[in-house]
Amino acid sequence: MKTNEPPVKDEPEHLAKAPVRKSRNRIRVENLAWQIAIGIIFLSIWEYASERWISALLVSKPSRIAQTMWEWSIDGTYVKNIWVTLKATIMGFGGGAIGGMILGYITATFRRVGEVLEPYVTALYTLPRLALAPLFLMWFGLGMEFRVMFAATIVFFLVYYNTYFGVREVSNELLAAVRIMGANRAQLAVRVVIPSALVWVTAGLKISVPYALVGVVVAEMLASDEGVGFLLAKSASQFSTYGSFAAIAALLVMALLTDWLLETITRRALRWKTAGSASQEQQH
């Protein structure tokens, strides 16, 4: 019989398991399970509450939204509009980021230029970007250019400031050490300044991706006849909550995807930063 088995605490010491850190993979699987569970619970409550507790006109319900998403997937509404939004986001992000990095690098490297331009940059940065919309509309019309420019101006400043501070933050000690070893200006930039600033720059790039998307969607909502923002605005104007939610779902997926993409790209470049920490990707 198993009934008179000794209680656990009397187990000989060598059989007791010493506490060790949970493996990274185990934690990841557990986290994923939690994430899925939370999502299902949330959707179930939503489904149940809709019409019972809150008017379905205001919050729609997951099944109805899923149906719309399915329809839009089949009739090409999604593909066409997501592509338009994605294109504008990428172009706005790319243009703003490249401009921001170049100007940030120049103003940080040539101190005087930075000092002279500072009040202008600050003024433009503080200006609410939405205030530029009417002007941009006049200049660029309703087309793609308006959306791209609108997103680019937002991204530009975020990346500009991060690059500027990144380059200014470079350790003087490192610079001196490498200069003594015989580095010229270009070598200093490639070997020290850029890798060092990259931490800041990638942080700037990462935070500006969602802003680029916001810029494009806002521009599409303001003035456009295509794109996810347009879809959102149109659905809302027709009191179609399920349409609005279906458009928001597309935005969510786009945001998650772009974030993941950027994470993957930057992780390699910044491997040296994470290399020393104990939470490395390796197993025990």
Partner: peptide, 26 residues
């Protein structure tokens, strides 16, 4: 700057983004 000297300072001036080999080769 005097770049006819090799200077081993008191502080750590290894480039954090380069491996040991790459640092020594610099």
């Amino acid at each position: 700057i005097n770049n006819n000297v090799g200077y081993m300072t008191q502080g750590d001036t290894l480039l954090p983004w380069n491996t040991v080999a790459k640092n020594i080769l610099l």
